[in-house]
């Protein structure tokens, strides 16, 4: 049996888990190619118009894999930490895919909770149903996959740059260099280092969250708010760039919370959608870096006596 593992959404973070699990079960895994123009076009064609860019791109990945595998991994991730959801679109992802893309092979529809071993295990059983009925094999594969996932580290932390900024956003916007048009590389070229939310301790996040009137019920909100206010408070960075997809419901709230949490700290929001032009994005990054007083001084070749 061939397993299709589409890139996109939180598979950027949890692909190790899915890979190891299905590899241990002895199945062949087919990957979708990195996001590109064709995948984007496929996604835009199939997906409901109102959805955000990452969801459209995921539709594209799934559509590109549909003839190449027997079972598609389309995780319905409900909660990562207890009582912390992701986004309603994640919870309804399998339904969106089934009803939007014709001729799909089997897909995984069981709800996936990452915070407890038992719930993770029941996802594994439900998803491996068609592959093997051997419970002990599934359990062994699940444990191994969990271990491997826990030992994998993510995040970007550049060192040795004069200026540093915190890059915030959903993992699938930060790690997909097609969506964000190589943002990290562009920043590095301008002499700016990048740090992402993985490099902050849980306890620091908890302290920051106390500042809110209401405990955030989204995992993204907790990470983004906690990380950005912590970094701004500690003055470990010079500015913050938030990369957000157009019409993202969570971002529309989180950005406001961050803005009121960091006061006058330099903060820029980059909106991306399927029409974003690269030149405009570059101009905005350059302007932001200039404002931070860093970067490469392009005007240094002018004579001082103008």
């Amino acid at each position: 049996m061939k397993i299709g593992l589409p890139k996109g959404l939180l598979n950027y973070k949890y692909s190790t888990f899915f890979e190891t699990f299905f590899f241990e079960l002895g199945t062949e895994i087919v990957y979708s190619s990195d996001t590109n123009k064709e995948i984007l076009d496929l996604g835009v064609k199939h997906c409901v118009d109102e959805a955000c860019l990452p969801i459209k791109i995921f539709h594209g990945h799934v559509a590109s894999l549909r003839d190449k595998c027997d079972l598609l991994i389309t995780p319905r991730i409900m909660q990562i930490r207890k009582k912390e959801f992701i986004c309603p679109k994640f919870c309804g992802l399998p339904e969106m895919l089934v009803n939007s893309i014709p001729n799909l092979p089997m897909i995984t529809t069981a709800p996936l909770y990452f915070f407890s071993k038992e719930k993770l295990y029941s996802w594994c059983i439900a998803s491996a149903e068609k592959i093997t009925k051997d419970r002990s094999k599934v359990k062994a594969a699940c444990t191994k996959a969990m271990e491997k996932q826990n030992n994998t580290s993510y995040g970007i932390k550049n060192q040795g740059f004069r200026k540093n900024i915190a890059l915030i956003g959903h993992p699938y916007n930060i790690y997909d260099s097609f969506i964000n048009m190589n943002l990290v590389k562009k920043l590095n070229k301008l002499g700016v280092g990048v740090i992402t939310e993985e490099f902050v301790e849980e306890k620091d996040l908890d302290i920051q969250i106390q500042k809110l009137y209401k405990r955030p019920f989204w995992n993204f909100a907790r990470n983004a708010f906690g990380f950005s206010t912590f970094m701004a408070e500690q003055k470990k960075i010079d500015g913050i760039i938030y990369i957000s997809s157009f019409a993202c419901g969570i971002d529309s709230v989180v950005i406001e919370l961050i803005k009121s949490g960091i006061d006058e700290f330099p903060f820029m929001v980059l909106k991306i959608d399927e029409h974003t032009g690269e030149a405009g994005l570059e101009t905005r990054i350059e302007a932001f870096v200039d404002m931070l007083g860093g970067g490469i001084n392009y005007e240094s070749n002018l004579s001082p006596l103008r």
């Binding site: 409901v48 109102e50 309603p88 679109k89 339904e95």
Partner: peptide
């Protein structure tokens, strides 16, 4: 309303 997350999911299902 524009950008309503849950209703976007149901909009994807309604044509079916």
């Amino acid at each position: 309303p524009l950008g309503c997350m849950p209703e976007i999911v149901s909009k994807a299902i309604l044509p079916k």
